[in-house]
Amino acid sequence: MKINGTYLVHLPQERAYALLQDPEILAKCMPGCDRLDKVAENEYEMKMKMAIASMSGLFDGRVKLADQQPPSSFRLLVEGKGKIGFLKGDGLLKIETGDETTNVIYEGDVQIGGTMAAVGQRLLDTTSKMMIKRFFDKFAEVTRDLKTPGPVPAQLQD
């Protein structure tokens, strides 16, 4: 399934680029993700609890960052597998500059397998969009006070 969209973030381009690759920020923003554990350069393992309404599932996952072209683009690869199926996302994020704001343009491909794919067909598109929206909404919230470089404030690390 193809996905694409544009999201406006209130950050300068370089800052947006950096924060979108910050494992602590990613862990905060990815729906259901508790934390990312580094396993290699630009590669992390995670446990995810995806919850959409009454539906939920635990996933063991992996996040990879690749093809980094600072400050304008990189690829984000997310994989997860659990008892209700597996998912694989491969997205190119383009970070396009404005002055105070930045457009994050994403396009990619999501693959779903297992029970989720067989029974959730009519909802895959809608829920994928919702998950991405949740990610960026959370990103906006988490990075509101992080317009300039610095350590992630402690209150965000809970």
């Binding site: 399934m1 693959q111 397998g113 794919a117 067989a118 029974v119 067909q121 009519r122």
Partner: peptide
């Protein structure tokens, strides 16, 4: 089937 071989009409819902 989608391009990856997942049967997306996998239930009577679809």
């Amino acid at each position: 089937y989608d391009d990856n071989g997942q049967l997306i009409t996998g239930e009577l819902m679809d």
